[in-house]
Design a protein around this nucleic acid. Structure first.
Lengths: 224, 224, 224, 224
DNA sequence: AATGAATGAGGCTTCATTCAT
DNA sequence: GATGAATGAAGCCTCATTCAT
């Protein structure tokens, strides 16, 4: 597991795009987004290794060879899809955990926000969560700063310190439980079920109830 | 989310080698179990689609073509790996949920038992959970009876009926939270961390606390 | 029977190369015709199942995988080779049988025309006649409209109706005799023998004499 | 084409069979005949190259490896199937053409006998006629003595000499017509159609009428 | 900004054949 | 008289990638 902290200082590299003059930039950029979108969808649906570039190209009404105007390798495509959602995830978490309130309060906010964010970016998130290992090792390392589990664990520790969270739980394991429940959403959610907000609220409720100090046993009159 | 990754653990399960007397030397059954074991390990490590039969054969010191003495297709191999753990999972769950006690009590037993079982069969479980969709459609349908989420949901409903579980939670969503937390274990567990039993106990504790009735009924956030 | 054998002749048909002006260099269409031609020749020489795509590719100075830019499967190649000659055969027959004259006259024209056509398209005809059963069932059905035997039978019936052909012969069997003699040409013809027209004329003569009315009506053997 | 004559002096080689003691010989021999029979059927149905030994073995309820107790190679099987019918063909022809009467009379007998023989041995004949080229070159040469076309041509020449057959026909071409019509039977005959004798009679009638001297033009009063 | 025609490597699968038992 | 477990070669096919146009 990784050292946590508030999302380290990592500059965002500019996408490797071919030099295009100003006039064509606009449309090329649109095409690029289409490509990413189609690729994300197919990687999510069938898996990275099981998706052929020719299939992606087909859905875009172009030939597979033409994709190489935009990418240097298939791995590029996976990387770009994941990088997008990766940075959004970091930004999202930073904002969520920066709030006021006890550790438990902030944990609730994080759970809710995480679930909503995940569902809002379902396709890319699915690719990120399911296909990360298919990235080249270099790229996997490049994208290793995002460590939700560490961040959540720290939040739990803070809650234990400020008396809002039970001390009999292992912060790391509790963090894994939270992360598992929330990440797993990509495996079962589909539209038409409960709304994202409802899911988020219920999950947050379950975990805050589960982690909160037991009023009966050890009342929360034990501030840090 | 957390930097995802599967194969951190992937222990080589020692095969339950049936005591072979001298006359039965090197039975085909033994070889078949070796094949299943190696295949499971590699599918778990690199993914089904990214694993070549030649790699599996290489690890077994045989030629890739020779695998076809045992299987009819690569899909067969995935199927056999998954089928094993699939039936064990069903059997395991049946036994766990059959116990006495309130719905909540049985839910606790199921959570604990499920986590322990999952960790005990880490490799095959990883394949089952991560590569299920790579099965042919026919096979996916054949293996569609295993519905942990439905079973857990029913358990929660029973708990709500017998008064042991809060009625303000959606049983389906709560079941998904439980299942997500427990299934996710395959994504982060590796030996040397907390013991399986410890993990199981803590997860069970978090969810039983979270779902139990009789806490101060804190549906709405109740800031300090 | 005779020592059977197919490929004695197998001339390399010169492709009808559409006059290409300088701007249209090396069109894909030209390559495709080369592929068809080479495939037809090899299928005729060694049989479909015994011909490897690698052999075809080798003769074309390309890699076997490259063939798949043009075809979807090996069966495709057989199909395309056969389809060409199949339609030509239908067109040819239609024209031949449409002529004026008695049934016998038209039968003579058909026999002559059929033999000439067959020899002119020896390679493809050989593949058609010898490898038809190697087509996938779907394709065999697709190409089931060509029914020389039925057409010839009808011609004979017409001849019997108009009094030009003996009525003591079974039209179906007589048609089979005609078809067998003419189709069999692909098994023995090779350049340097009698000319196609000569063969055609002699075959036509034999059958018209054999089927014609007005010979001394020799149904029963009439020894000298 | 081959030098004709009455089937040269060629001794029949003993089948390459493993040395078996007298007690087991009987049953082994039976099994061998079963093997030949199944192989012939499958080669006739799907073609030699498209038939796998495993399919033949399957139909015999044995394993493909076990076939090698009886044969040394797949080619062996084809060879044995063909050799049987090959010798029968030679014997049959010898007997047929040895009769009395004019050349035309004997031609009639040959046609009739050939058709009946062919239909009586349909499966093996099909393999012989359709798969001969799939034999190894050595074996093809070994079985090159059977030359129906030459024999028939000679018969026709004799008929032309004795005045029973028209002199305006090329004996070779006429022989090919006869042979084509008769051999082709394997391509269309199936039980439930006209009886073998009927087919044989009609074919003989067509060709004797077609080849006979025209009573009007050149009466058969022209003995050798 | 893309096409068309490949390449080359490698993937899955089949199959004739072997050989110890 | 056959089995069981391979081998090794080859077959069909896929696919990421290239490059001239």
């Amino acid at each position: 597991m990784n050292t946590p902290g508030r999302a380290k200082h990592i500059e965002r590299k500019t996408r490797p795009r071919p030099a295009v003059d100003a006039s064509t930039r606009k449309s090329s950029d649109e095409r690029w987004r289409e490509i990413l979108s189609v690729a994300a969808r197919m990687f999510a649906e069938r898996g990275f290794a099981a998706t052929a570039l020719s299939q992606i190209a087909h859905d875009l009404d172009m030939l597979k060879g033409s994709l190489y105007y935009y990418i240097k390798s298939k791995d590029d495509l996976l990387y770009e899809v994941i990088r997008d959602v990766y940075w959004q995830g970091i930004a999202n978490f930073n904002q969520l955990s920066r709030g006021a309130g006890s550790g438990l309060d902030r944990l609730r906010a994080v759970i809710e926000g995480h679930v909503v964010h995940l569902i809002s970016n379902m396709t890319a998130t699915t690719v990120y969560l399911h296909e990360f290992n298919q990235l080249s090792e270099a790229r996997r390392e490049e994208l290793s700063a995002l460590d939700y589990s560490g961040w959540i664990r720290d939040l739990i520790k803070e809650g234990q310190a400020d008396g809002s969270i039970r001390k009999d739980l292992d912060p790391s394991l509790a963090a894994m439980a939270v992360l598992g429940a929330t990440n797993w959403v990509y495996r079962w959610y589909h539209e038409g079920q409960s709304s994202p907000r409802e899911i988020a609220a219920q999950f947050a409720e379950i975990f805050t109830s589960g982690l909160a100090v037991d009023r009966g046993a050890s009342p929360s009159t034990d501030p840090a």
